[in-house]
Design a protein around this nucleic acid. Structure first.
Length: 884
RNA sequence: GGGAGCAUAGCUCAGUUGGUUUAGAGCAUCUGCCUUACAAGCAGAGGGUCGGGGGUUCGACUCCCUCUACUCCCACCA
């Protein structure tokens, strides 16, 4: 059967994925092999695959496939995250589109809708990962809201509560008026935003002559919530106002003037309005001065009745309106443009409103300390290690974690309130009742109300590396781990984005140490953010993110994987460009065509191996071992793109451009000559090795070809073949081959510059016997040289072209005359270049201090450099003489 | 405002305790090729005073200082 010229991934990818699944190759069970474990960073259950996932999961798959071939018991645990805010927002939006408001539903009804949504959309992203070739152990797929996983979260809450680490309190939180929930500091993104500075006149109470102070504010709509005006105690400009009162404009409310050194004298007017309910700093000033808290903004960001005016207006509408009212009342001194950092909700992009509310917190100081230590001591390695600084900074300035969210989708906080407002925290309603009855024996189950809030999503994902194996472990540090946890934990490598280093990575370390007394993973490989060619972050809004599924359809999953990896280096952002994926596809095609070439050969059992083939086989064998060593080293250092590039070049240049071209059987009279068995077998074996080395990167094409290059038994797979190992090899052989290759390149360049056809055979003379004589057959075949003669001098200098490889002189006699003047100029330029070099080297060697201080081998090397340069100059000068 | 990182060819990046022939790769570019595996290819070539300035050293892309540009993280200046 004639094979198509171009490789068609659609013919192979689904076929082999089903084959792998059918034979359960991805599944892992504890055994006596060494475990190699990765837990997937669980994507949002409602998410669809984007380029960041592609990057991340390709890397994980490369590592896991490689580990599997290295003989480890490789286990990659997949799953999804319930992502409470994001998912709840999507469900709310979907219901809204159907005319249903969340407020019309009970909690149970809403959750029913949410679970239905999850049924429908929850598996999409995992199915998409299969297209990519991800070799996850699908039998272990977990969801952060699986009953057992949720139980682990509840147990953890109860554990920390009883340990005294979880407390409840009124705090100023970051309120998302769209998501209607508090969000953590980490979920607030600060962006510089254009706003205005309004200068308002507050009249001095009781002043006869209409005296006033000017206050600068960006939030005039909050003046009704002002509790005081504050000046700096040292600010002499305002000393006459001490103890006086001012009148809030429009509502004519009298508030005191207080003094606090928080105020910056030279910022604004030096006069600050204090609004404890709507600003975190003002809140703190309010605490110091025992000021009342007047909360005039409701959960939706609208002014409430306490505002007295503009009631029911949205905060931003109210701002515009009140400015107009103040202006009309003559109380607006002036307006200035101003840029300030405004907090936005990461999830809904709403402007965050600082708001006082009752929330649950987890104390972080103690657990953060140990989590910092293990990273400082390199028990956990961050790759690249520059993230250590960032990590340290965060861990040293850690705040208590606000873990409650005013949502329904998630694990409901297991706190149960008694009628008198007291509460108990227990694993189950039954235990809660029992605990409550200790307080009041007459209580019935119906007297208890459970806290409405759910827990922050990260409060469940921080247990992920533990609970995917043993969901009964979190909350019970002293319990024996089950067999799975004991075997797979700690996991090996975690591949994730630096953005969630604190959200997730740091907290997993904390949970791991708390419950397992051990780190959750040894290496954290932090990938970059995938950006477009212009360096913009890929986002739906910009529409600059390609659809990964379409990309895979167009270029093949192998091509896309390669394209992603080619532009990755740890911690650096990835500038994604489709041309890289194209390069990946081209590589698939190159592999495919190498296979087509080999497949077209016939074997003659009696044929003798040619000289050049014998050399090529020996050389390639050595080069293979060296390449494996280099690749292993790159993998050890997580330089995955470097490892790939080495392999890419090894296949393309060394295997295709050199090895195959050398051993390619001759073509005589339009007919392919057969190849000898020794060479053929060696070639198949090399190809087999290459496929194995490439397999972790490009699983599909390698599986396809591996099944075609040789007989395979049913149920065999490349993915479980042992990885090729390096053997001892001769550096010298590799070096002399590369000298020969350089000679071939020089001869080709010579042909090109003189318009000599590759078909015209040439004679080559070499001046000294120091040249790699055993490589002669290679030079002859690859450069179409009929004869290589070793001579003492080159005669007839004007009718040939000389060149040097290292210090060896070659000469090609040519029938036509060369342009002597041009040649002389060229040789002179060469001499000048080497003389310049020689000068710098001899200056170095002439420096007594250098010879004294530099290591002996460095000096030795410089001497060799000088000697070589001198030889070259001598050679060139001789050549110049003969030309003249 | 504080902290961190980066600056090397047109682009994306290597350059591993300062010395490996006066800097490497991939892509892109240019030139010549439809050579019987592959034009998604083959062969060849060009291209960088390593951001600027100063310093340490026998020797600096590499270490130090400074300036400039960019990026990221943290932070309550109303």
């Amino acid at each position: 059967m004639e094979l198509p010229v171009k490789y068609d991934p659609s013919q192979t990818e689904d076929k082999w994925y089903s084959y792998w699944l059918k034979h359960n190759f991805f599944h892992s069970e504890p055994d006596n092999r060494e475990a190699y474990t990765i837990v997937i960073p669980p994507p949002n259950v409602t998410g669809v695959l984007h380029m960041g996932h592609m990057m991340n999961n390709t890397l994980q798959d490369v590592l896991i496939r490689r580990a599997r071939m290295m003989g480890k018991n490789a286990c990659w645990v997949p799953g999804t995250d319930h992502a409470s805010i994001a998912t709840e927002a999507k469900v709310v939006a979907k219901l809204k589109a159907e005319g249903i408001e969340k407020s019309d539903l009970t909690r149970e009804e809403f959750l029913e809708h949410a679970w239905k949504w999850r049924e429908k959309h929850g598996g999409i992203i995992l199915e998409q990962l299969k297209k990519l070739g991800a070799s996850c152990d699908w039998a272990r797929t977990k969801f952060t809201m699986d009953p057992a996983m949720s139980k682990a979260v509840i147990n953890t809450f109860v554990y920390f509560y009883k340990k005294g680490y979880i407390y409840r309190g009124v705090r100023m939180v970051n309120w998302d008026p769209e998501g209607l929930t508090a969000v953590s500091d980490e979920e607030v993104v600060h962006r510089e935003t254009d706003s205005k500075f309004y200068y308002l006149r507050y009249k001095i109470s009781g002043s006869q002559n209409g005296e006033y102070v000017i206050i600068a504010t960006t939030r005039p709509e909050t003046i009704m919530a002002d509790a005081a005006v504050c000046i700096h105690p040292d600010d002499e400009r305002f000393h006459h106002l001490r103890g006086k009162k001012v009148i809030i404009p429009l509502i004519n409310k009298e508030i005191p003037i207080i003094e606090d050194s928080y105020v910056t004298m030279d910022f604004g007017t030096g006069c600050l309005k204090v609004t404890p309910a709507h600003d975190i700093n003002d809140y703190e000033i309010g605490l110091r001065h025992k000021l009342p808290v007047i909360d005039i903004i409701d959960e939706h960001g609208k002014l409430n009745a306490k505002a007295q005016i503009l009631v029911g207006e949205d905060r931003f509408v109210a701002r515009k309106k009140i400015v107009k009212m103040l202006d009309e009342a003559g109380l607006l001194e002036k307006t200035e443009d101003y840029k300030s950092q405004i907090g936005y909700s990461e999830r809904t992009n709403a402007v965050i409103e600082p708001r006082l509310s009752m929330q649950w917190f987890l104390k972080m100081d103690v657990i953060a300390k140990e989590a910092l230590r293990v990273v400082e001591d390199d028990e956990i390695k961050l790759i690249p290690d520059k993230f250590k600084n960032t990590y340290r900074h965060w861990m040293e300035n850690v705040h208590d974690w606000c873990i409650s969210r005013q949502l329904w989708w998630g694990q409901q906080i297991p706190a149960y309130y008694l009628p008198d407002g007291e509460y108990v925290v227990e694993d189950t309603p039954e235990e809660a009742l029992a605990a409550a009855q200790k307080i009041d024996p007459n209580l019935k189950a119906s007297d208890l109300t459970r806290d409405e809030d759910v827990l922050d999503t990260w409060f469940s994902s921080w247990l992920w590396p533990i609970s995917v194996f043993d969901p009964e472990k979190p909350g019970f540090p002293d319990k024996e781990p089950n067999k799975e946890l004991a075997y797979y934990y700690p996991t090996n490598d975690l591949i994730t984005a630096p953005e969630i280093l604190f959200f997730w990575v740091a907290r997993m370390i904390m949970a791991g140490q708390e419950f397992c007394h051990d780190i959750p993973f040894r290496n954290v490989y932090l990938t970059g953010i995938v950006r477009d060619k212009q360096g913009r972050k890929m986002s739906k809004q910009l529409g600059n993110s390609p659809d990964p599924i379409k990309l895979m359809e167009q270029y093949g999953a192998d091509g896309v994987r390669l394209g992603m990896l080619l532009c990755t280096s740890a911690g650096n952002d990835i500038l994604f460009d489709e041309s890289q994926v194209e390069q990946g596809r081209n590589f698939s095609n190159k592999i495919w065509n190498a296979y087509r070439l080999i497949k077209g050969w016939t074997i003659d059992d009696c044929a003798k191996q040619s000289e050049e083939a014998a050399i090529a086989v020996k050389w390639f064998d050595a080069k293979l071992s060296r390449t494996i060593e280099i690749v292993n080293d790159h993998f050890d250092k997580f330089r995955i793109n470097d490892a790939l590039m080495v392999i890419y070049k090894f296949f393309w240049d060394d295997f295709c451009a050199w090895y195959l071209e050398i051993i390619k059987p001759a073509f005589v009279d339009g007919r392919q000559m057969p190849t000898d068995k020794t060479t053929f077998d060696a070639t198949i074996s090399f190809f087999d090795s290459l496929l194995k080395i490439i397999h972790p990167f490009m699983p599909f094409i390698t599986e396809e070809l591996w099944h075609n290059i040789d007989e395979r038994k049913a149920g065999e797979t490349i993915m479980l073949q042992p990885m090729v190992k390096a053997k001892p090899y001769s550096e010298e052989l590799i070096h002399s081959f590369s000298q020969a290759a350089d000679t071939v390149v020089a001869l080709r360049a010579l042909r090109q510059s003189r318009n000599i056809s590759p078909k015209e055979a040439l004679t080559l003379l070499v001046k000294r016997a120091g040249y790699p004589a055993d490589m002669s057959p290679i030079i002859k075949k690859m450069a179409n040289i009929s004869e290589i003669g070793v001579v003492d001098t080159f005669d007839n200098a004007t009718a040939g072209q000389a060149f040097m490889i290292e210090t060896i002189e070659y000469y090609v006699p040519l029938s036509g005359m060369i342009n002597v003047a041009e040649e002389i100029a060229k040789v002179k330029a060469e001499i000048a270049r080497y003389e310049g070099f020689l000068k710098s080297v001899s200056a170095k060697l002439g420096n007594a201090k250098f010879v004294e201080h530099a290591p002996a081998q460095v000096v030795e090397l410089e001497r060799k450099k000088m000697g070589d340069a001198q030889t070259k100059i001598d050679n060139l000068k001789q050549r110049l003489d003969t030309l003249k």
